[in-house]
């Protein structure tokens, strides 16, 4: 996991989510910082979706900053995967 670069995917447009990944300290796990226009209604669900993608791709020790503008689950998944790929993770396709 130390070979990961900092990477970003997604935009601040309506219905999108901007994901910025930075490698975390060893043992830090998956840390998610979330800002969202629907935090009260979907904050938990968004965190869960992000964490699931990271877990399925066997990624850990990573800091994920997410700025959400009302993205649906499929968009969140796509943006996290894109950021992971740009960070150097070889995506496991069967899970996409």
């Amino acid at each position: 996991m130390n070979e990961l670069k900092t990477a970003q995917a997604g935009t601040l447009e309506s219905n999108d989510i901007m994901i910025t990944l930075t490698p975390g300290a060893e043992g830090s796990g998956v840390v998610i910082e979330l800002e969202s226009i629907v935090l009260a209604q979907y904050g938990q669900a968004i965190r869960k979706t992000i964490a699931n993608v990271a877990n399925e791709q066997n990624v850990t020790d990573i800091y994920i900053k997410a700025v959400d503008r009302g993205a649906l689950d499929c968009t969140i998944q796509a943006r996290v995967l894109a950021a992971l790929s740009r960070a150097g993770v070889i995506l496991q396709k069967e899970l996409i």
Partner: peptide, 9 residues
């Protein structure tokens, strides 16, 4: 179904 069920505030 599209957006997921929202939490009530």
């Amino acid at each position: 179904k599209i957006a997921g069920e929202p939490e009530n505030i």
